[in-house]
Amino acid sequence: MTALLAAEGLNGWYGRAQVLFGMGVTVGPGEVVALLGRNGAGKSTTFKAIAGLLDRREGRVAFAGEDVSRLPTPALVRRGLAYVPEDRRIFADLTVEENLSVGRQPARAGSAAWTPERLFALFPNLAEMRRRRGGAMSGGEQQMLSIARSLMGNPRLVLLDEPSEGLAPKIVEDLALAILELKREGLGILLSEQNLHFARLISDRAVVIDRGHARLSATMAEIADDAEACAAYLAV
């Protein structure tokens, strides 16, 4: 089986500072992979490097077997990559429906296209507030909308940057259910997390990143049980 996403040897920079050093990660269809690491370890940068959002980057990114290293972000999105940023970045002046429409991309052959109706079924909260302005929503609702908006692009792989950050425990549980539902749909999911409990609930595999290097790659359970690694790289 070809991996959906195979990134290897990623070097990334912010300004003059190199943040990623040969970072690599793979994700298959229907697989949830957690990128674990402390703050500043390079999780967000890895996502931006994959999504083509870094000013300066080296390395190889393959998407469904095709080398996409040199493609700009919009071309990646059209091939089925979705990126949900850490700070959600909802368009505050647009309604829920308008926010969704910004994310819309043509349907993908062989799979049912996401429509607002299907998304409202997945995130029932949003259905009650179609015409509400994005800026008038709570943090949890914005997180759901941010994910829903990226699904409108009919992705095959979703990058979720710190999805549980700043959310109430109950909302985090709802989020876990939604992510497992997407997994059942066959989507590949790469998420970065600091909440090990949450990552454990939903992830199949995990990659531990520290100072821009991939230190460990194993099943989620193996990593969660590796007290030494957790202490060294995750400061648990």
């Binding site: 999504a51 959002l53 700009p72 972000t73 919009p74 990646l76 999105v77 059209r78 990126y83 940023p85 970045r89 368009f91 505050a92 002046d93 647009l94 308008e98 926010n99 429409s101 910004v102 994310g103 819309r104 991309q105 908006r149 990226s150 692009g153």
Partner: peptide, 24 residues
């Protein structure tokens, strides 16, 4: 129009619009 919605979205956060696949 969708063009208009995109313009309003870009008015608030043009980088996010690009991240959603719209050629900025």
């Amino acid at each position: 129009t969708r063009f208009g919605v995109l313009v309003r979205a870009a008015t608030q956060d043009r980088e996010m619009v690009a991240a959603l696949g719209v050629d900025g």
